[in-house]
């Protein structure tokens, strides 16, 4: 059975809308205001990075954001506390590395996420084979765990990823870490088509996307797009919630225009 988040995303998709899911680093500046601005500007869900000391899947921009947030005293507890009383109006998906979960304990972490209003979780360093303990806690708690697939994921693993993933499936556009790229390329469309061929869960493509043109290009073969580094870079450069609203609105408008 589809969860609330998945139903929300499917309904939008089935109505012909391309999904837009921005990412921001939790704990960085007035981050809940940035979050609300992005939701208001037409995001369909928002991913919240919970900073970790060793973000091995992230490029220099998100690394810098994580370090800055950590230096400012951010921890999972402060992220959860910051979110209490915030109603962004869209599903929130946490993205972090497994050690923070493992350290607190899977069940307690999942429980805290629910209390803070999260609907989903992305753990890039937990492949299908290692999902067990986390899923035993997250699934009953109602947290959707989103799995990732990449351009060289073979067909058999692609199927497993799509079966296990909940909420949506995260297609990684390119071989590499997070960061903006001048061109996202053909690999994204190829992967999106392969994913769409084996699942009817929403397929969102991320990594490397920053401009409205890229968003449209990447969303074409998929159900939507995830934009991370471009958002975080703007926040690091000091953009206000209003400025970020304008950026997300520009992506939204481009996606709606097709």
């Amino acid at each position: 059975m589809a969860s609330t988040m998945e139903t929300h995303l499917r309904t939008a998709r089935d109505a012909g809308r391309k999904l837009l899911v921005p990412y921001l680093t939790g704990g960085l500046g007035p981050w809940t205001e940035h979050l609300r601005a992005m939701a208001d500007a037409g995001a369909d869900a928002v991913e919240v990075g919970i900073p970790f000391s060793d973000p091995a899947m992230d490029g220099p921009v998100i690394q810098a954001a994580s370090e800055q947030a950590l230096r400012g005293g951010t921890n999972p507890g402060s992220i959860f506390a910051d979110l209490r009383g915030v109603d962004a109006g869209v599903p929130l998906v946490a993205m972090t590395y497994y050690n923070l979960v493992f350290h607190m304990g899977d069940a307690r972490f999942a429980g805290e996420m629910v209390d803070a209003g999260f609907s989903g979780m992305i753990l890039p360093d937990v492949p299908p084979e290692e999902q067990g303990p986390w899923r035993a806690a997250a699934d009953p708690a109602g947290i959707d765990t989103v799995l990732l697939a990449g351009p060289i994921t073979p067909d058999d693993r692609l199927r497993v990823v799509c079966e296990q993933s909940r909420g949506y499936v995260y297609g990684v556009n390119l071989m590499g870490i997070t960061g903006e790229r001048s061109s996202v390329g053909e690999a994204s469309a190829v992967l999106a088509r392969r994913l769409k061929a084996v699942t009817d869960k929403p397929v969102l493509m991320g990594f490397g996307v920053s401009t409205p043109e890229q968003a449209v290009e990447v969303a074409a073969a998929a159900d939507g797009v995830i934009v991370g580094t471009a958002v975080v870079r703007r926040i690091l450069e000091g953009e206000s919630p209003e400025q970020l609203h304008a950026y997300i609105a520009s992506l939204r408008a481009a996606l709606d225009a097709g």
């Binding site: 091995a56 899947m57 497994y98 890039p124 360093d125 937990v126 492949p127 299908p128 084979e129 290692e130 799995l147 990732l148 697939a149 990449g150 060289i152 994921t153 073979p154 693993r157 990823v161 990684v172 071989m175």
Partner: peptide
């Protein structure tokens, strides 16, 4: 515990 991209 590696990203799916590295599993293969």
């Amino acid at each position: 515990f590696v990203p799916e991209t590295l599993m293969p």
